[in-house]
Amino acid sequence: MKLKQFGITFLSVCIVAFSGMKAAEAASFSVIADGLNNPRGLTFGPDGSLYVTEAGTGGKGACVPSPSVANQSLCYGTTGAVTKIGNGTQERILTGLPSLALPDGTDTSGPQDIKFDATGKPYIAIGYGSNPTFRATLGNTDLGK
């Protein structure tokens, strides 16, 4: 009896395997934007364009201790941005936003996301990836707002 069940199971597997099932195909991708500095959030705007927040690469301004890399500092700059992608074009539409990063431009905080309200007004969340007690060291910035 067990041999009969095995035979039926084996035959079923063979039929499924050879019944014209397509092998999985690799997906194809197209690059729609490049040259972004630490891209973060993506949102489609009311105009149908894709908006990308870029956390930037920090800068040569005041520095605070990095919470994630021992004995390193995150330094302030205004390299954060928002890029608009639509109709086959890519354009930075907002620049000069606050950014914190290690000297090599990694471990970045800055513009994290963008959303639009019902009237089409954009709102940008700007991160601050360090101990809040050091915020005053950076001066009056929009980090963490």
Rank of each mutant, 00 (worst) to 15 (best):
residue 1 M to Y: 14
residue 1 M to P: 11
residue 2 K to V: 12
residue 3 L to H: 09
residue 6 F to W: 09
residue 8 I to L: 15
residue 8 I to P: 04
residue 9 T to V: 14
residue 11 L to F: 14
residue 13 V to M: 13
residue 13 V to H: 03
residue 14 C to D: 11
residue 14 C to W: 12
residue 14 C to G: 14
residue 18 F to P: 06
residue 18 F to S: 14
residue 18 F to A: 12
residue 18 F to W: 12
residue 19 S to G: 15
residue 20 G to F: 00
residue 20 G to T: 08
residue 22 K to N: 14
residue 22 K to L: 13
residue 23 A to G: 12
residue 25 E to M: 13
residue 27 A to E: 13
residue 28 S to Q: 13
residue 30 S to Y: 02
residue 32 I to F: 00
residue 32 I to N: 04
residue 33 A to H: 06
residue 33 A to S: 10
residue 34 D to R: 06
residue 34 D to E: 15
residue 34 D to L: 06
residue 35 G to S: 05
residue 35 G to K: 01
residue 37 N to K: 14
residue 37 N to S: 15
residue 38 N to Q: 13
residue 38 N to M: 08
residue 39 P to M: 12
residue 40 R to H: 10
residue 41 G to K: 07
residue 41 G to P: 08
residue 41 G to N: 11
residue 42 L to I: 11
residue 45 G to T: 07
residue 45 G to S: 09
residue 45 G to W: 01
residue 46 P to F: 03
residue 46 P to N: 13
residue 51 Y to M: 07
residue 52 V to G: 08
residue 52 V to E: 13
residue 52 V to D: 12
residue 53 T to R: 06
residue 53 T to A: 15
residue 54 E to P: 03
residue 54 E to I: 02
residue 54 E to S: 07
residue 55 A to G: 14
residue 55 A to H: 00
residue 56 G to N: 09
residue 57 T to L: 14
residue 58 G to Q: 05
residue 59 G to C: 03
residue 59 G to F: 01
residue 59 G to N: 07
residue 60 K to R: 12
residue 62 A to H: 10
residue 63 C to G: 09
residue 63 C to F: 00
residue 64 V to R: 01
residue 64 V to P: 02
residue 64 V to G: 04
residue 65 P to S: 08
residue 66 S to Y: 00
residue 72 Q to K: 13
residue 74 L to P: 00
residue 74 L to C: 02
residue 75 C to H: 01
residue 76 Y to G: 06
residue 78 T to A: 15
residue 80 G to Y: 02
residue 82 V to Y: 02
residue 85 I to Q: 01
residue 85 I to L: 06
residue 85 I to K: 00
residue 87 N to D: 14
residue 88 G to A: 10
residue 88 G to R: 00
residue 89 T to V: 10
residue 91 E to K: 15
residue 95 T to Q: 11
residue 101 A to Q: 00
residue 102 L to F: 07
residue 103 P to C: 07
residue 104 D to M: 09
residue 105 G to F: 02
residue 106 T to S: 15
residue 111 P to G: 11
residue 116 F to W: 08
residue 117 D to G: 08
residue 119 T to G: 08
residue 119 T to A: 15
residue 119 T to F: 09
residue 122 P to M: 04
residue 123 Y to H: 09
residue 127 G to H: 03
residue 128 Y to R: 03
residue 129 G to R: 03
residue 131 N to F: 02
residue 131 N to M: 04
residue 132 P to L: 11
residue 132 P to H: 13
residue 133 T to Q: 15
residue 133 T to A: 14
residue 134 F to I: 06
residue 135 R to D: 08
residue 135 R to Q: 11
residue 136 A to F: 07
residue 138 L to W: 01
residue 139 G to P: 03
residue 140 N to W: 03
residue 140 N to I: 01
residue 141 T to P: 04
residue 143 L to I: 06
residue 144 G to P: 04
residue 145 K to T: 09
